[in-house]
Each structure stands twice: as structure tokens, then as C-alpha cells.
């Protein structure tokens, strides 16, 4: 407040003048001067007051604008996040669809975990190499070698899957499971049965099948994939908390495997969505 300085100085000056002159006439004149100075100080104060009032009102206006600008920024960021999450979701959906189509054609991409590579069906290896989609591709469990004859239903189910006849394929997998409850392909059949539901959006049923793979075949090479898909279904069903826990488990227990990478990505998606 520079303005406050000089009236104070002026008053001091006037006082000094007043003290220095002893004559009555001089005093009267000094008093006039003093009064005038006082008035001018008052006017200045008045001005300061008015300035302050206006400054306060403007400060309030400025604050309002600041808040509005911040809100605008927040709303825009929010929208960006929402759009990004949506974009990623649709990208994943497209990938999953493509993959399901590839799987359905009897086409088996890279193994879920390296130690299971030996179990790969002959002839699938070349396709798997060709079909290796970079990084974020859902895992494709490979088929273990199984005794001929017991896998007729299974083969047919895979065939139907290839024709996108999910219901029929599911029925065939179920028939295989009834005929070979302890068969070498039981875990796989159960997993694929889950997939037939998943692809049709029947997450409740899909989740039940994936959960059975996890509980009934803990040593199966389908464990990681089944757990991952279980996490997906839980998320689709809106149970974010359980889904997060399941995917967390995949990430920790199967570190390095594709399933773990996919779990990590899905977890990030869930987090982005919840913000």
C-alpha cells in the first residue's frame, strides 16, 4: 500500500510546521492546514476503503473463475480417462474375439507356460509360431497328448468351436466330461466349456466352470488360464474386489507367464475405471 505512506508523511510534516510557528495567526492557519490535511487523509482512507471493497469483490470473482477453470480441467481429464478406458476395453474385446476365432479354428498359439511345451499336439507347433501375437494376447492352453479313442467328443467339440457353434460345442465338451471324468483332457474340456459360456456372455456359468478347473485340477496346466478367466468373469459380473484378488493371485503365482501379464493389464484397466 504505497498510498498509505505519503499521507502519513504529510501529517508529520504538517505537525512539524505547526510546532515551529508560535504566532496566533500562524496557529490558525496551521489549524486550517491540519484540518485540510486531515480531510485529505480521510479522503484517501475512503478511497482505500472503496478500492479494497472492489478488490475484495474482484478477488471473489477471480476465485470463482479459478475454481471454474480447475473444474473444467478436472472434467476434461475425467473424460480423457473414461475414453481411454473405453478404448482399451474395446481393443481387448477385439483381441479376445480374434483369439477366440483363432482358437476355434484349432489354432494353438504360444504355450501358456514354457514347461508345458512338450504337451503340444503335433502339427500345432508351426501354427503356434505363426500365430504368435505380440505381448497382450490371451493365453492359449495347449492340448496334452491323449489316448486315441477317448477324444472323439473332444475333437468334435473343438470342431464345433471352430464353426462358432458355441452351444453345440459346449454340449460336446460336457459329453466328453461325463464319459471321461478323469480323462487326460478333462481339465482342458472343462476350461473350454467355460470358454463357450464366456464367449456367449454367460459369465455366471463360465465362472463356475473356470472355478472347477481351479479346484478340481490344481496340477493342470490350465490352472493359470482358468484363474485368469475366472478373474475376467468376476470382473464382468461386477465383483471388482474378488476379480482384483483373483487377478492379483495370477500375477504373483504365475509370474513370467502370459496369464500373469494379462492379469496385470486387466488390473490396470480396473484401476483406471474405478478412478
Amino acid at each position: 500500500m504505497k498510498r498509505t505512506d505519503w499521507p502519513v508523511m504529510a501529517v508529520a510534516l504538517a505537525l512539524a510546521v505547526a510546532l515551529a510557528s508560535p504566532a496566533d495567526a500562524q496557529r490558525r492557519r496551521d489549524r486550517d492546514v491540519l484540518e485540510e490535511l486531515e480531510t485529505r487523509v480521510g479522503v484517501l482512507e475512503q478511497q482505500i476503503r472503496a478500492d479494497n471493497v472492489v478488490a475484495l469483490i474482484n478477488a471473489q470473482d477471480e476465485l470463482r473463475r479459478e475454481i471454474q477453470a480447475l473444474r473444467d480441467a478436472v472434467e476434461r481429464l475425467d473424460e480423457d480417462l473414461r475414453r481411454n478406458a473405453e478404448l482399451r476395453r474395446s481393443q481387448f474385446a477385439a483381441l479376445e474375439e480374434r483369439l477366440a476365432a483363432m482358437e476355434a479354428r484349432g489354432f494353438t498359439p504360444a504355450p501358456a507356460s514354457p514347461q508345458d511345451a512338450t504337451g503340444q499336439a503335433p502339427g500345432d507347433a508351426a501354427d503356434a509360431a505363426d500365430g504368435a501375437v505380440p505381448g497382450d494376447q490371451p493365453p492359449e492352453p495347449e492340448e496334452p497328448a491323449i489316448a486315441a479313442g477317448s477324444q472323439e467328443n473332444y475333437e468334435q467339440a473343438r470342431e464345433l468351436l471352430g464353426q462358432a457353434q458355441y452351444q453345440a460345442a459346449g454340449a460336446e465338451f460336457l459329453r466328453y466330461l461325463e464319459a471321461n471324468p478323469g480323462g487326460g483332457l478333462a481339465a482342458n474340456a472343462r476350461y473350454w466349456l467355460g470358454e463357450t459360456f464366456y464367449v456367449q456372455g454367460q459369465y455366471q456359468e463360465a465362472g463356475a466352470e473356470f472355478a472347477r478347473v481351479v479346484s478340481d485340477y490344481p496340477d493342470s496346466n490350465k490352472l493359470a488360464d482358468a484363474l485368469l478367466k475366472l478373474g475376467y468373469t468376476q470382473d464382468e459380473l461386477g465383483d471388482t474386489e474378488t476379480a482384483t484378488a483373483t487377478l492379483e493371485r495370477v500375477r504373483q503365482d504365475f509370474a513370467g507367464a502370459d496369464a500373469a501379464n494379462l492379469a496385470t493389464i486387466r488390473l490396470a484397466q480396473i484401476e483406471a475405471r474405478s478412478r
Binding site: 473463475r65 471454474q68 477453470a69 473444474r71 473444467d72 472434467e75
Partner: peptide, 8 residues
């Protein structure tokens, strides 16, 4: 509304 500075 101009809750976000300009009208939207």
C-alpha cells in the same frame, strides 16, 4: 452451465 469456466 459455466461451472467449468466457459459455457458447456
Amino acid at each position: 452451465s459455466d461451472r467449468g469456466i466457459g459455457p458447456q
